[in-house]
Design a binder for these strands. Structure first.
Lengths: 190, 190
DNA sequence: AGAGACATGTAATCTGTTACATGATTCG
DNA sequence: CGAATCATGTAACAGATTACATGTCTCT
């Protein structure tokens, strides 16, 4: 039984999910959780190193010291059996509705305060951002879709594929919505 | 010219957007920015009162003391002309790609660690959450869609309508995605 | 008389970003 | 020899949540 009384944060579960796929150094975890696709969650190294130490103290991960560059010892972390148990329990746990927080939609909510030309331009830029995100996701999906295990629900690649598919669908929908908004603006300007 | 050197936070612009639509007390701002639909941004009163004071100090809003309940004076805030200018400038300003941060997708990314039955159940619960959000959005849209100004891009109701439309489209897409994921799970379990 | 909405604040804590700090190895 | 990458940490600050604190008015 692990040291209880130590609640794991969302970031902690993100890291456990990463390490369940493959053992990594803190540096590698930071690379994988960075731009442009950190699989729908991001964090900086300054947040990751302390969190790894907490997970380590809670025995949800363990580390071995390996040789590597840098002034301090390089550590490779791997998830422990109790880490895997905790991760699986979190995955199927209660999901309370999380607050929506979208800065771009917040902007659009005040779009009535600006001139139609500026509004049109803003939506165009939004469209560009969604398009490039979509392109990246499609590329990622193409890279994994022929790999073995991609259709097996007990394999990590299955989960990568379905979350990527979700990203693709939502970006496509956002693009359609942008086109619709342009049309709504044009209809009124007429 | 307002006191410069005072950068306004995203929360500040959310509040300015609210006050641009109608003058409110801090309490009313807090009600409007609460669950279930805070128009894609939420905040608690403990964050709102200090922010209102900062906006007030920067002359982006002003207040009058009115009579009301409570141990302290009740204040009604309204946006100032320079507040409107600042809001409009923010709306058309640069949009740097914001980091994706979705806790439900993060869960799904580790769904391969659990049994197919539990995975199926999780997706069912996700579907229920999206469905109830969709229902709320549809109700909201029905309430405003016959009001005057709803098709005029210079009116707040236009912006309410297009952001609500975005919410509806994204929830519908999420529901389709959930159905697709169930099918993918079933195909493999076969 | 008690519950609940109205009304405004502060304090403690947690989460996340930016900036500071150090130093080895590899490639051009 | 300089730049980039590998590698790990801490400190200061900003943003957000939870809890503490107070007191009135209205309805049942």
């Amino acid at each position: 039984m692990p040291d209880s009384a130590a609640p794991v944060s969302n970031l902690g579960f993100a890291i456990l999910g990463l390490l369940a796929r493959r053992a990594s150094t803190g540096y590698e975890v930071a690379q994988r959780m960075r731009q442009p696709i950190g699989y729908f969650w991001t964090a900086r190294h300054s947040q990751i190193y302390p969190e790894l130490n907490r997970l380590d103290a809670a025995r949800l991960v363990e580390h071995e010291v390996i040789e590597g560059a840098g002034p301090r010892p390089t550590k490779r972390y791997r998830i422990t059996p109790s880490g895997q148990t905790a991760l699986a329990a979190w995955v199927v746990g209660d999901l309370e509705p999380q607050p929506v927080r979208d800065l771009e939609v917040l902007r659009l909510w005040s779009i009535w305060t600006v001139e139609p030309d500026a509004a049109h331009d803003l939506i165009g830029r939004l469209e560009g951002a969604h398009q490039s995100a979509l392109d990246r996701y499609l590329e990622e999906l193409a890279e994994i879709s022929d790999l073995p295990g991609v259709r097996d629900p007990s394999k990590p690649l299955f989960a990568s594929r379905i979350t990527l598919e979700g990203g693709i669908r939502s970006r496509r929908t956002a693009l359609e919505w942008c086109a619709w908004m342009r049309a709504e603006l044009a209809a009124a300007v007429r």
